[in-house]
Design a protein around this nucleic acid. Structure first.
Lengths: 346, 346
DNA sequence: CTGAAAGCGCTAACAA
DNA sequence: TTGTTAGCGCTTTCAG
């Protein structure tokens, strides 16, 4: 049997037991060097005896010391978000910060005030994982209200501010998309189609960049959701056209759906159809055939975002140097030269 | 241009501007009925003018009113965890609570104190998403220290306490595993093999329950990790034995890996091999062939966990009645009768 | 209906 | 090296 409901010990309780002032206890807790060893020992004993643990709330309130971040996103399940969140949490915990999350409904038209209301108090630090319109808007709202306490990740398109780099972390998915598209072109495809995620992200831009640069026809991108199902439907339609020999997908889930549609349409991969995804999720290597895709280091970006935020808050140093992997095309089995015998159309 | 660094307005500021005491402002904010309409109007005007937003920290400190939960888990990426977290957040936000997360390393041998240190202060409420040894241990540590402020989800096996139901939410994955196994047996399989997730969860028990009940041979379960890769390796080995005609997998990722291995081994599905997963993740329906699996309502469980916690904290009512879907076997294309022509062995 | 006083648990600034 | 006095922004309790 344990003592169940005894109130938690406070600084005062420890001070009394140790026969010192509460301030001295505070010093010990905070590793101040200005405490005599003997005193420290006494205090520490009392701390142990009472199983004292500092109260984070009181600490933050009194000190004005921020030790927590709120992360705003629209989905805890979306791969990129989940990984980014994991990275933030990892770095935050290592630095002694706590992290709260608040998820926004992608379909809700939040006002600036709505967004602000998600924070524990005015001016409290936040990181927004920006990847769609809603999170983009949230980012801008926070950016206006508390320039110093906000950092965002993802979605290049979501801001036009030039000093962007001081408070945002982005992955160069635009460049990566261009490289992936060129890879397909180099393989001999006449053009590349695009299944787009709801985010009007760099991927879409990079894709058209590469096509334009190569002087190829730029087909209309097909708007999909985030999920497999939407890509499956979209691809079914797209594949009615035998001239479609290559598809760049906005993420691995879309590629997954496209793969399924291709299979059902009797298209051989990569002979009849090449498919490239984005994210390099764990399943990508285990699809049949294994998916060519772009590795995106969301976890690293999450860590970087936290570091950037911390530096702004603590006003020391400046932007951390990137400690995450740059996007990289992982060529596997779903991309290859178009089979001349099967290019029925065009 | 906005005013960038002006300190946030406090209750006092509002009070001054409205010409009332800060106490009255507090009443207005908290919707106390004991305020004259005229006063309320004045106050509200001041609130708007100053863009006042209450400080959650101060509120909790002063009132002793808890408005936040900490969620403990080992992985933000694992499907079950991510969904459960989403459910908790959803319910928590609706109730005006904030949610923090803290992730534990599955390989770290945490002491009870380590676990407690993850909370903002002694006695603060927590929900642990328990699905492996580490989270199970964390659950027990918290359970001892603050019986009223903790609720856990998942992993039936992780506790032996009989009054369990008062502070835990579990899904009957044991029963579901038994049903899935029987489904396979009914289809004509002699026995069913099992690819096990690291959690010694009900799934494993249900599987052996059903086999024992039917008087069949119970093969040794194959220990896998959480991921596709581990199942792929395990299945490759398992499939060397032609007598293996049915595999129940601990989750959909494992089923995914097994599917890939089966494909490479030249096994026709479901003719040569039946595979069943767990979770009914979005991709399950889009695998080729589509995966037979068990729908598990993690999100609902997350919501339920929060509700249960809240009731304990607010000491009102009792256990909420389950508002989540019971596990259900979704039969798709990977389960079928063994093809007599191909049962080379046994 | 409203205000004044006290205090949540802690840190900061100063004094001793 | 230590203690004292404020006060963070709010809620609670008690008087008016």
């Amino acid at each position: 049997m344990r003592t169940e409901t005894r109130k938690a010990a406070s600084l005062m309780d420890v001070a009394k037991l140790a026969g010192v002032s509460h301030q001295t206890v505070s010093r010990v807790i905070n590793h101040s060097p200005l405490v005599a060893d003997a005193t420290r020992t006494k205090v520490l004993a009392a701390v142990t005896a009472l199983d004292y643990r500092p109260n984070r709330l009181a600490r933050e309130l009194a000190g004005g010391t921020v030790q927590s971040v709120t992360v705003l996103t629209t989905d805890t399940t979306l791969y990129g978000s989940a990984e980014t969140l994991g990275g933030i949490e990892e770095a935050a915990r290592a630095a002694g910060y706590s992290v709260s999350i608040s998820v926004l409904d992608p379909d809700e038209p939040y006002s600036d005030a709505d967004v602000m209301a998600r924070l524990p108090h005015a001016g409290s630090p936040a990181i927004v994982i920006a990847h769609d319109d809603t999170t983009g808007r949230a980012m801008r709202a926070l950016r206006q209200a508390q320039p110093n306490a906000i950092v965002a990740t993802g979605g290049e398109h979501l801001s036009e501010e030039p000093d962007d780099k001081d408070w945002r972390i982005t992955l160069d998915d635009r460049g990566a998309a261009a490289r992936a598209t060129r890879h397909l072109l180099d393989l001999g495809h006449k053009t590349v189609h695009h299944l787009a995620i709801p985010s009007k992200a760099g991927r879409r831009l990079g894709w058209s960049d590469a096509l334009a640069e190569a002087g190829r026809e730029i087909p209309a991108p097909v708007e999909c959701g985030w999920g497999i199902g939407s890509a499956y439907e979209a691809a079914r339609e797209l594949l009615d056209d035998p001239a479609v020999t290559a598809i760049l997908c906005g993420n691995d889930d879309l590629a997954f759906g496209a793969l399924r549609a291709a299979h059902l349409a009797g298209r051989a991969i990569p002979g009849d159809l090449s498919i490239i995804g984005f994210d390099d999720r764990p399943f990508a290597a285990y699809l049949t055939p294994a998916l060519t895709t772009v590795d995106l280091d969301f976890r690293g970006v999450g860590r970087g975002a936290f570091e950037l935020l911390r530096r702004r808050l603590e006003r020391r140093g400046n932007r951390p140097r990137p400690a995450w992997r740059a996007p990289e095309l992982i060529v596997r089995e779903t991309s290859g030269p178009p089979d001349p015998r099967t290019s029925k159309g065009a």
